Simulated assay, not measured.
Amino acid sequence: MHLMDRLNEDLKSALKAKDKKRLAVIRGIKSSLQNEAIKEARELEEEETLLVLNREWKQRKESLHEFEKANRDDLTHEVEQEIKILSEYMPKQLSEEDLDNIVQDTIQEVGASSKSDIGVVMSAVMPKVQGKADGKQVNQLVQKHLT
């Protein structure tokens, strides 16, 4: 099932269940996807959809971090709920071991050997793990293997 179809079905279910939080998150996701499609003036490809979802997820993670720093438990709880709902639409995240294997394989593919090759490795790894791993985590693994 296409993501937009799934969102529409879940939107109907949330309306019927009067689940305001789920409703708000789904509407936000749909809005972001529609805005991106309007910006591109065409239907979004699967990779582009993942980029939008990833952007939404990352924004909420950053908000969560800021709220935790400010000791705003009320807002922290809300954002955690949003992240949980949003995660249902994200592709399954790669395990640390799988991600590490992808990074090592890519380092060998591009022939990287020093820290100066980090950019080359990152640009080769990110398309492989788009939406399935956090860029910070990938960067840390690349740096670890090239040190």
Rank of each mutant, 00 (worst) to 15 (best):
K84F: 04
S13Y: 00
Q104L: 14
I29M: 15
L75C: 01
D117F: 03
E40C: 01
S31V: 00
A24W: 05
D10R: 10
N71C: 00
R42C: 07
S32F: 02
K20R: 13
E88S: 14
L75H: 05
S31R: 14
A14T: 10
L64G: 09
V110T: 12
I83Q: 01
I102A: 03
M90L: 15
I85K: 05
V121F: 09
L94C: 12
E36R: 15
I38W: 00
P91R: 10
Q81H: 07
V25P: 04
L3G: 09
D74I: 07
A17P: 03
Q93E: 13
D100P: 00
Q143H: 11
K92V: 15
D117R: 03
H145K: 13
V25M: 08
L11T: 00
Q93P: 04
A112Q: 08
Q130N: 07
V79M: 08
H77T: 13
G131Q: 13
L3F: 08
L141K: 15
Q34Y: 08
V25Y: 05
V25C: 06
N71A: 08
K58V: 01
E97F: 09
L23V: 06
K144E: 12
S123L: 02
D98T: 10
K39A: 11
S87V: 02
M126T: 13
R27Q: 14
V129M: 05
L50W: 12
K92I: 14
K132S: 06
I118Y: 03
I38R: 09
A133M: 04
S116K: 14
K21Q: 15
V103M: 02
K12L: 13
L86Q: 05
E47A: 15
K16P: 00
I85S: 05
A17E: 15
E45T: 15
V142N: 07
G119T: 07
A41E: 13
V103N: 02
E97C: 00
A133N: 04
M126N: 06
E78Q: 10
T106C: 03
E56V: 11
A14D: 08
L53K: 01
G131T: 13
E56R: 09
S87P: 04
V120E: 13
D5E: 13
D5T: 10
